[in-house]
Design a protein around this nucleic acid. Structure first.
Lengths: 157, 157
DNA sequence: CCTATACTCGATGCGTTTAATCGAGTATCG
DNA sequence: CGATACTCGATTAAACGCATCGAGTATAGG
């Protein structure tokens, strides 16, 4: 199960992905739209910002916007930022490899071998599907990727 | 990530799957072989027993053995017993469906749609691969499925 | 330049889960 | 009948999840 926090993050990112080009959204509005506790959302957005997925502007007329095009933000990327490694075993993680303490030989580990296959199947989905995939088909009239640069420009990064 | 407990359970089950026909193994020996704290293993085995995956005999010459053939015990089955639902979202679980509290319309949930695909990919692996798959190729001289009935017989279930 | 607005961010609370350990109880073999 | 070994509820310490609070800082607009 993914964490509640990850669910919040993904819902917020989907809202941001639907945002018209050049617009930002206030944390409060984002919290209302995505149904996320505002105080909690702040922390989530800071994490996403630190990893370069969103940008923010302070003060009046402030708010958040995506820093990358929706089609270049995968579900896997968001999930890793919020929940950490997706891999079912630490010894399978690409982003945070850690040897199992009590495992003498990884290549001989039957459990690792099975979960390797499971993980690969999962990755093929989560590292492929993007925010664009999530919102397309549901609402066709949204800002196209070409307009995304303006948002970044407009926010002054 | 799967829990440490699930790792223990799977390691223990792999050891049991390798056991020659008709034999049982003491909890202590199983704990040593699979590198699991004995006291903790007892609880794990009780869970697996309650769900019909293993059988036990008390007293001298007691111990544990598989109650089903290794090829009919999937990794998913063990995982569900120990860690609960495998599904990344409660609203996707077949075994423990639960609506997300703040979701007005499941069919319109973009997050659900993406994770549905991820989950299906995972299930295709975990609900297909069995203990037999795990041990075959690593050690070819092990009890074949036909011998499994004797174990069940021998243990008096 | 001043102030209302809104992002920043460390600290804290607290209930749940995880990963065990303990000890008393009970069944079984020889 | 006694040694062995499974049974099982109680307890525990640490970590984690899910937030909330308050003080701080940057910015737009008057």
């Amino acid at each position: 199960m993914i964490s509640q926090k990850a669910k919040y993050a993904l819902r917020a990112m989907v809202v941001l992905a639907r945002l018209p080009a050049g617009e930002t959204v206030l944390t409060q509005d984002l919290a209302d739209t995505a149904a996320v506790p505002k105080r909690f959302l702040e922390h989530i957005l800071l994490d996403l910002k630190a990893r370069g997925l969103v940008a923010s502007r302070r003060g009046k007329k402030g708010g958040y916007a995506l820093l990358k095009a929706p089609e270049s933000i995968t579900f896997g990327a968001v999930l890793r930022i919020i929940d950490g490694p997706i891999a079912p075993l630490p010894c399978l993680s690409q982003t945070a490899y850690r040897r199992c303490a009590d495992c003498p030989d990884e290549d001989a580990c039957e459990i690792r071998h099975v979960f390797d296959q499971a993980y690969e199947a999962t990755r093929r989905v989560l590292d492929k599907l993007t925010l664009r995939d999530a919102i397309s088909g549901v609402d066709e009239r949204m800002p196209k990727s070409s307009a995304r640069a303006e948002i970044i420009q407009g926010i002054g990064i």
